[in-house]
Design a protein around this nucleic acid. Structure first.
Lengths: 315, 315
DNA sequence: CTGTTAGCGCTTTCAA
DNA sequence: TTGAAAGCGCTAACAG
């Protein structure tokens, strides 16, 4: 940095301020310094920066399985755009989990915040994390609102009124309200939770078949689940979409391949929203405030859109 | 650290050495210091450590799409086991790519090495990366050897002799040799490259159908491709596995769902192998050596196994 | 085997 | 708006 300072004819302090966008530097100086730094291929050393400044500019991202790619991609993009590095922790098995929670003191020294994407934290794990003195934010179903609305509007427009909703296991019931807002009815016994697998989707159908009648549409949080629902319904002699329509909130290759109507970008949306909440918490902390949680606006236009395929049709 | 030193009745230097497993500390001292540190919930500050020591204990992991979850999980696990943090970079679109390659100077100051998982680097990108002065390792098909052998043995045992091999686009031909070693014949025109999508798999079949005859078995590097091959063959009236057997090297949910015989753990294996090569390079560098590349042994027993489903049968 | 002494490359008061 | 000086918390020589 002192090389850059010399080359630009200013002090290191000024270079530091200029490059970080800190106030207290004239626009002219900032521009010039930035240009010199770029020409010299100089970049601030994060180690030294965070050692001196306290902030680490890094966020730990927890995922259970290397997981849903788009979720991770959405979170990573939003974090990087905000200037944070993404430290990935894959908590795939009990060993990895245990090791991670053993080493929380180290975590606290590495990151400014923690983002739990798909880690299904146990209560004691959550408590341990909360003791780390950095904000912890987990993906919630709220982060999926736009996608759910889109799916709900679609099935409603097709004439469906009573639909089943299949959520991820860590989801809470509040999602149902979004369907209600869209003018749909949600029977309590038609709000179901499923593991994010084909088998999970099949089991969901078994439950539905036990009832007195079937819904005419099913909204599934995941592509695998949607496929499971699809396969199981067909095996039972039901026609899709003749008897039952299926929408997936997970527009991956799987939905595309099998021809399932899906909301594209839903997972990315979840990631981005969660990051928004985390950034708000970080901002709050650095302002000395206490804004844990807090509403956030992705700023960006919602990146979700519905792709209609062969799994949905009029009631 | 000085607190711990005081509490343990030693100097900070000794604490540092003890906690990092550096030589030059008696076992007794090390044990005691470690225990004191743990009790005080102390962890070394990475910033300060790497500022003073030069090593960053972090690796940048590049992925195109948040990608194949198991690949990432395998790499992350192996890196963390070796004491490295994983800095995730998702190069999902041109914007993200451009931003990443704009900022290479910053990368060089953050990590000790780069691991490209599924980023399909263009030549100029690869060159730019190589200019970064840290080892760069990309996942190669070599990292898939055990999986390929397993798949080859399976189809051979079923009586197949001439098989088609569908590789990822960035793969090289050497994989074919593994099939030959297994006693299979590999016609040049039956070694094919495909994008990792269902559509890619379908196109592959189109190419095969143009030939004078079909192979009796197809080994596919990816689950989506395998599904594409499967769907396209069926559409053409071929029976799977009656006419053609299909094996996927990607034992994900997709293969499970559709009933495709697959090698489970192959992606994890790839990740672990690539990390092995990167660690070797890092070790080489820190020893002052020049061992770029270099053979590595995962040490661990191979984590791959074949799961036979309905897509393979006797010739 | 252990302690002492210099920094590593920044950021941040505090003055100017 | 800018600069000078004092660390941030550790590691690596060098002594002992």
């Amino acid at each position: 940095m002192s090389d850059v300072a010399r080359a630009a004819g200013v002090s290191a302090a000024t270079v530091s301020r200029a490059l970080r966008g800190e106030p207290g530097v004239s626009e002219a100086t900032r521009r010039y310094v930035t240009e010199v730094a770029k020409r010299m291929r100089y970049a601030i050393a994060r180690d030294a920066s965070s050692l001196a400044g306290g902030r680490k500019y890094a966020v730990a991202v927890l995922t259970a399985d290397g997981g849903r790619g788009d979720l991770l991609a959405g979170a990573e993009g939003a974090l990087r755009a905000a200037g944070y590095d993404v430290l990935l922790y894959v908590l795939r098995d009990d060993g990895a989990r245990a090791a991670f929670f053993e080493d929380l003191p180290a975590l606290a020294r590495r990151v400014d915040g923690v983002l739990a994407l798909s880690a299904r934290l146990a209560d004691d794990e959550r408590a341990a994390l909360d003791g780390v003195a950095v904000p912890v934010v987990a993906v919630r179903d709220d982060d999926l609102r736009d996608a759910l609305r889109l799916a709900a509007a679609h099935v409603r427009d097709l004439g469906h009124r009573e639909v089943a909703l299949v959520l991820a296991e860590d989801a809470d019931e509040s999602c149902g309200e979004l369907l209600v807002e869209a003018g749909l009815r949600v029977r309590p016994e038609w709000t179901l939770w499923s593991s994010p697998t084909v088998a999970g989707g099949e089991q969901v159908v078994d439950v539905l078949l036990d009832g007195d009648r079937l819904p005419t549409a099913v909204v599934c949080a995941g592509g695998e689940v949607a496929l499971g629902v699809f396969l199981r319904l067909r095996r039972d002699g039901r026609d899709v979409p003749g008897d039952v329509s299926i929408v997936s909130l997970d527009g991956t290759e799987l939905a595309r391949a099998v021809g399932i109507t899906a909301v594209e970008g839903a997972w990315r949306e979840r990631g981005e929203h969660a990051v928004g909440r985390l950034l708000a918490a970080l901002r709050g902390e650095s302002h000395g405030g206490e804004s844990h949680g807090g509403e956030s606006h992705g700023g960006e236009p919602p990146s979700v859109r519905l792709v209609v395929r062969e799994s949905t049709g009029p009631r």
